[in-house]
Amino acid sequence: MSAERDTCSLSVLEKKRRHLPGLEGVWVFVTADMTVFGILFALFMVGRDQDPEIFESSRQSLNPDFGGVNTLILLTSSWFVVLAVDAVKRKEGDGAQHYLAGAFACGVAFMVSKAIEYTQKLNENITLLTNDFYMYYFTLTGIHLMHVVAGNVVLAVLWFMARARTIDPERPTVLESGATYWHMVDLLWVMLFPLLYLVR
């Protein structure tokens, strides 16, 4: 009997271990998106190799504090999202709602920080036409920023769903899908930050 229960709990455990968070389609999307960013990072490195002086002098003009703060903001927001998923699974609706609000606020903070950084650069008459480094800087961070905006829309929808208690604690597929996407946005920034601001 106990052996049977053991097998049973083992298979349940295995099922839990094998469970793919979120919709399979989100993983298709994430894989494709990461591939595109992978190509972009490779193109950046090729460009850097062709014109190392311009890339290095331009990199030094970037303020790494902005990049560092943005990294912290996004890591914190990812942490909030993890807590929200956990809260939903523990059927703590209020907690999930607050954590999602925290993640959303971090997303807004990221956008504000980026807006300040862009404004500073534009005030110095630096645009994506200045040189190849800034072309990559504005396009890569711009495309990433569009991902953040889309992610914030997703987080807002999830917040409304958490408030209406329409997320199923047993199968929070929509929440997990949103969380997967948001973690990807975070991961991309964690790669973009050293690539643009730190690599000498």
Partner: peptide
Amino acid sequence: NWACYLTIFCAVSFFPASLTGVLKTG
């Protein structure tokens, strides 16, 4: 479903083409 999500991805892959209005190299 995977093909539908791939379709959405392909659809949004056009967005960088807006930069053709500004950039001449790269």
